[in-house]
Computed example of a mutant assay.
Amino acid sequence: MATIEVPGPEPDWEEAPSYQGGKRNPAFQQSLLEHALGTCRVIAGLQVPLEPLAARLRLVVERGWEDLGHASAAMFMIGRTCFGLSRTDGDTYTLVHVDRAVTDHEAALATLFAALGIDSTALAFRGTLEDGFEYCNGWTG
């Protein structure tokens, strides 16, 4: 088998997972977490850490990174609805994600709350990026 040498990066290329103002590097790296959650939308934030939520459903929490830093997440399905729970290091809330095909966010939250054994008092905020978010239960961020 022939030996093929791959040249190193060009000296002016930025690191692939970082912001690239000049876009000199032809690759922009996304994490597996960003890629997976990119198929979902945020519909709520919970005032509960990720770990007890994941423990309740016996989920495996995966570590990764995203554009805001290191994060932990668990992706799962309840029935036919795909959910994600994620928390970026330093945040005081856990994000709730659902598949973009889900249009009834209240029903999805009700399904999730029933499985988690919690109710809407756990909400820090609800809504979507497109429609805006509203704070809940006295949470102010």
Rank of each mutant, 00 (worst) to 15 (best):
R24C: 01
L57E: 05
G45D: 06
G90L: 04
R56S: 03
L59M: 08
P52A: 08
H105S: 03
Q47W: 00
V61P: 03
H35N: 09
Q30N: 12
I118F: 07
C40I: 00
R24P: 02
A114L: 12
G141Q: 10
R58V: 05
L129R: 11
C40K: 05
I43W: 04
R126M: 09
S31Y: 04
L59Y: 13
L59F: 07
V48S: 12
R41N: 08
A110I: 02
M75W: 03
R24I: 11
K23Y: 06
M1R: 02
T128G: 10
V6A: 14
E51G: 07
S72V: 04
Y135L: 14
A2H: 11
Q30D: 09
D12E: 15
G127L: 11
Q47P: 00
A16W: 12
V96Y: 05
E34N: 10
Y93P: 00
E15G: 01
A122T: 14
D67G: 04
A27K: 14
R63N: 06
S18G: 04
D91A: 10
F76H: 06
G117V: 10
L57Y: 05
V6N: 13
V96P: 01
H97C: 03
T140W: 01
A44Q: 04
R56V: 14
W13G: 09
G8K: 11
R100W: 06
I4P: 01
E130L: 13
N25D: 06
A36M: 09
L85I: 08
G127P: 14
C82W: 02
Q20W: 08
R41F: 01
A2G: 02
G132L: 09
A2C: 01
L68W: 05
D104N: 15
D89W: 02
C136P: 01
I43F: 02
D91V: 07
E34Y: 06
D12G: 02
R24T: 14
M77E: 13
F113W: 10
G90D: 07
L85E: 06
I118V: 15
E15N: 10
A16H: 09
A73R: 15
Y135H: 15
E15T: 09
L57S: 08
L85T: 03
N25Q: 08
G21P: 10
M77R: 15
T103C: 15
V42R: 07
L46G: 05
W139F: 15
T3W: 03
A55F: 00
F125M: 08
D67R: 09
